[in-house]
Each structure stands twice: as structure tokens, then as C-alpha cells.
């Protein structure tokens, strides 16, 4: 008898018919998981006018693409997408299903998991296959990392944020197959999407900023936060935050860095008034230089940075802003 030959799946996420980077990153990861298991990588690609993207998926490591190409699939619709994916999964029985922690993935993953009556791990920072051929899903927690498995039920499902895994190097020479997914794609009439509106993000985009400054609970209040925002502007840095800053209403959820937020990979990172909790710090990958300002010399954040300032940020930042101004003046005059 064959060993478990069930494939590893990725659910593709696209915007205006272009794949999101996280999809290709996941296909790359799925490839290595599938190689460890000796099985194939299959991608479910839904949209309208997305057929040209199949080649990119093959290049990233997919063996097979289930292509649902239909006007009804143009926008993500919770009921329609869930029905299509659950329908396919019940027949093809993937052993692993991966989704990006995108707006779509965060809603679609639990819908699919609940329908398939299986487990789902949120915002993983690593995935690997153990000796029992089970998917180990790593998430940060309480000062360390924990491994989660879903040993009894299939598929094993996980979401992963953009930027956790690298983009795979495209490999042109793979054999591959497109399997069309046939409609009709009808929704139950419960949910009607009236409009999808895109808004321009404000400020320097965090994903590509060379310098990222993150503020935390230590800002204290709106005035403290304004100082942090001013410093970010002064440094030309992307402004990110920890969760308390979102909870307090100082910063937008979209700017939260970490496990359940954005992943960033700047050259330089500055953390102001934050404690260096794992859930935040995992969001910063490969920074050359890390700096922290915190009023507690014993704060764990200082174990994770190169340069530290022990001070009240509300007192320190005005002085720092002044010193930056002086430095700039001196540079300009010589």
C-alpha cells in the first residue's frame, strides 16, 4: 500500500489578478514540506482573469493548480470561496493546507477549517515535518516559542504572515498540470458584497522601509505617541507599533508589527517604550542594527538589541529630536 500520498495545498491570494507575495512564499515552503513527505504541491487559485498566474505558481514549486476562473470568483466572497475550497478538499484530501494571514486568509481559513472539522494554527513563524510525518507549527508565546500539531485530523491547517518565508527562486523546468474548477459558483444569498474600496496607506510603507521605528505602551498617552511619530518622520522611518498602541487608539492596526501583524525587514530598527515581547519581536527579520529606548534597565528588550538608552521616552525624545536638529545643522554648515 502507498504511504500517505495526499498533497500539500496552498490557497492563493490575489489582488487585481496579481498574486500576493505571501502566496509565492507559501508555495516555496510547501515545496520543501512536500519534498520531505514525498508528495506533490497543489494550489487553489480563484479569481477572474488569473489564468496567467499559474506559471508563477509552477515556478515557485507547484505541481498542480486548481484554477477557478470566473466572474463570480473575481472578489473573495466568504460563502462562495469556502464552498469551492471545501468541495475540492473533500475529494482531493490534502494533508496540509496553508493560507496567508491576509484579510482574506484570516476569514477564509477558519471557515474552511470548521467545515472540514479540523484544527487551524494562526500566524505561524515556522513550519516543518517531524519524524512521524506530522506538520509542526511554531508560534511565539510567552517569552519563547511553542510547537502546535494537529495529529488526528486532516488536513493540518495553518496561516502564515507575508514575509515569514522567503520568496522562492523561480524554477522554470517543472512538469505541471492545470485542473479547471467548474462552476456554477453560486452563493447562498446571505452575504452580498456591495463594494470593495481600496484606500491609500499613509506614511512610509513599513514593508519596504530601510528604518523602522516602533512605539509601545511606554508612550503613555497621545502626547507621548506624537513624540514617537515625530521621531519617525524626522528619521524618515516607517512607523510601527505594538498591540497596546493599537488598543489605546494611538496607532492603526495595519501598523502593528509582529506575529499577528506585519513582518518587517529593515536595516535599522528602533523600539521605543516597548518590552520586547516575542509576539512583537518575531515581526522584525534580519535587521542589522537594533536600538531600544526603555525606562527599565532590566527590560527584556535590551537582550535583543545592539544599542540601548535607559530613560523615560517622554523626556528623552524631545532631547533626541533637538540633538538630531543640531547634528543636521552641523552637517549642513560643513
Amino acid at each position: 500500500m502507498m504511504e500517505n500520498a495526499n498533497p500539500v495545498w496552498v490557497i492563493a491570494d490575489q489582488e487585481n489578478c496579481n498574486l500576493l507575495p505571501v502566496t509565492l512564499q507559501l508555495v516555496g515552503k510547501a515545496r520543501s514540506l512536500a519534498d520531505d513527505l514525498g508528495v506533490s504541491v497543489e494550489v487553489v487559485l480563484l479569481g477572474d482573469g488569473v489564468e496567467a498566474q499559474a506559471d508563477n505558481l509552477f515556478g515557485a514549486g507547484a505541481d498542480r493548480v486548481y484554477l477557478g476562473n470566473d466572474p463570480e470568483l473575481a472578489n473573495y466572497h466568504p460563502d462562495v470561496y469556502t464552498d469551492v475550497i471545501v468541495g475540492l478538499a473533500e475529494v482531493q484530501e490534502p494533508q496540509i493546507v496553508l493560507l496567508g494571514s491576509t484579510s482574506m486568509g484570516r476569514e477564509l481559513a477558519p471557515l474552511v477549517a470548521a467545515r472540514l472539522k479540523t484544527g487551524l494554527t494562526a500566524h505561524c513563524i515556522d513550519l516543518c515535518i517531524n519524524k512521524d510525518k506530522i506538520l509542526e507549527q511554531v508560534i511565539p508565546a510567552y517569552g519563547g516559542e511553542i510547537t502546535i500539531v494537529c495529529p488526528e485530523r486532516k488536513p493540518q491547517m495553518a496561516t502564515v504572515a507575508q514575509g515569514v518565508f522567503p520568496l522562492p527562486v523561480p524554477d522554470e523546468g517543472r512538469t505541471n498540470e492545470i485542473v479547471p474548477v467548474e462552476g456554477p459558483f453560486q452563493h447562498k444569498g446571505r452575504v452580498e458584497i456591495l463594494e470593495v474600496v481600496m484606500e491609500e496607506p499613509e506614511g512610509i510603507p513599513l514593508d519596504s522601509a530601510a528604518c523602522v521605528l516602533a512605539g509601545g505602551a511606554g508612550a503613555g498617552d497621545h502626547n507621548g505617541w506624537d513624540l514617537i511619530a515625530r521621531l519617525a518622520k524626522e528619521l524618515g522611518a516607517g512607523l510601527g507599533c505594538t498591540r497596546p498602541a493599537v488598543d489605546e487608539g494611538w496607532a492603526e492596526l495595519e501598523t502593528m508589527i509582529g506575529q499577528s501583524g506585519k513582518m518587517v525587514s529593515p536595516e535599522t530598527y528602533l523600539g521605543i517604550g516597548l518590552s520586547g515581547e516575542q509576539q512583537h519581536m518575531v515581526g522584525i527579520a534580519g535587521a542589522k542594527t537594533m536600538v531600544a529606548v526603555n525606562n527599565d534597565r532590566k527590560s527584556p528588550v535590551f537582550n535583543q538589541v545592539d544599542f540601548g538608552v535607559v530613560d523615560d521616552c517622554r523626556e528623552f525624545l524631545p532631547v533626541l529630536l533637538e540633538k538630531i536638529r543640531e547634528y543636521r545643522e552641523k552637517q549642513a554648515s560643513c
Binding site: 479540523t118 509542526e136 519563547g144 516559542e145 511553542i146 510547537t147 488526528e152 531600544a292 535590551f302 535583543q304
Partner: peptide, 16 residues
């Protein structure tokens, strides 16, 4: 369906 199997501390690689 999901269970926690392992916990690890994370090593610090930087000196402040």
C-alpha cells in the same frame, strides 16, 4: 484538534 507539544525559550543573539 490542535495540541501544544513543545515549548522552547528563545536565545538572544545580541549584546546591548
Amino acid at each position: 484538534p490542535t495540541i501544544v507539544t513543545e515549548m522552547r525559550a528563545v536565545e538572544n543573539t545580541r549584546t546591548v
